[in-house]
């Protein structure tokens, strides 16, 4: 980074969302502690994209690193939303799964190591189909194992949001942090519009989309644990707070009987809006 850029980085307010995956990790970790694993110079590219006429990227759109948070060991993975919509293929998926398994191993050896996942992803990379799905399954089983030892913290800030199989991954984490621009949902807006029709779900109606899947709604519905501004220091404080809280007594994904009942009782004949969705997800729940 040149002096010119450094000057403006220093007094720049906010702006986590606009950072690249690599800079996101760097901005979060204790200064100077970031050590990237399998860097672009290792040229671990997807073997499938080029065959389909897509220019691959030397990190396959996933950056993984080890480092320190408040002097505690962590592993961090960030998905680059700008590359192929943050889609997860064979290589990128294996990088994250491998990183989590590395943390598990450290914990088994008695070196407490937590994990932070920055998820800007549309889910599985369609060009790599089952290989991407398999990688996501490996990530999920690794999270379930790791979270017994140390917290696994997911961060969804936007601009892409977190969808598809990776939204399930986010749901398995010990803590989930979101901004108002972040979105969390199983199917993306275009997919729902295609399946259910534009009258049901207009993917260009940004008010509707964020109203149902945006950070404000997800936080109010109790599906995420922390709602922060798009601000590097606010986000970093929130991640450190989650880390300090340690392993939660009960993970959200183990606490499913109440929400399941509420979903089963939900009347789908009426068009849903943000207010009704929030009510359905929080009814009878004590804060």
């Amino acid at each position: 980074m040149s002096e010119l850029n450094a000057n403006f980085q220093g007094n720049y307010e906010g702006g986590f969302i606009d950072l690249s995956a690599r800079k996101r990790i760097e901005s979060l970790l204790d200064s100077g502690s970031m050590r990237e694993l399998l860097t672009p110079f290792d040229r671990l590219t997807s073997p499938w994209l080029e065959k389909q006429g897509i220019v691959p990227q030397f990190d396959d759109g996933v950056v993984i690193a080890r480092g320190k948070l408040d002097n505690k060991a962590v592993v961090v993975a960030a998905i680059e939303g700008g590359f192929q919509g943050g889609s997860l293929g064979e290589v990128g998926g294996a990088k994250i799964a491998g990183l989590l398994e590395l943390a598990i191993e450290e914990n088994r050896k008695g070196n407490p190591t937590a994990a932070v996942l920055m998820l800007e992803t549309g889910g599985v990379r369609l060009q790599e189909a089952n290989l991407g799905l398999a990688a996501i399954a490996e990530i999920q089983s690794a999270i379930v194992e790791l979270r017994q030892y140390q917290p696994v913290i997911a961060v969804v800030t936007g601009p892409v949001g977190c969808f598809g199989g990776m939204s399930i991954t986010a749901g398995l984490c010990s803590y989930l942090i979101i901004t108002r621009e972040g979105r969390l949902g199983l199917n993306g807006p275009q997919v729902i519009e295609q399946e259910a029709g534009v009258e049901e779900y207009d993917s260009r109606d940004r008010g509707l989309i964020w109203g149902l899947t945006g950070g404000t709604q997800r936080f109010a519905s109790g599906l995420v644990d922390a709602f922060v501004d798009d601000d590097v220091s606010a986000l970093s404080t929130s991640v450190r707070d989650c880390l300090a809280q340690g392993v939660p007594a009960l993970h959200r994904s183990d606490d499913i009987s109440a929400p399941l009942t509420r979903l089963q009782q939900f009347d789908t004949r009426e068009q849903i809006d943000a207010q009704r969705a929030r009510q359905a997800l929080t009814e009878g729940k004590t804060a």
């Binding site: 010119l4 850029n5 403006f8 980085q9 720049y12 307010e13 906010g14 702006g15 969302i17 606009d18 601009p159 108002r180 621009e181 798009d230």
Partner: peptide, 13 residues
């Protein structure tokens, strides 16, 4: 010449 130089990088900013 990078986007870092922009005084605001999103509508939210």
């Amino acid at each position: 010449a990078s986007r870092d130089l922009l005084a605001a990088r999103s509508i939210g900013e």
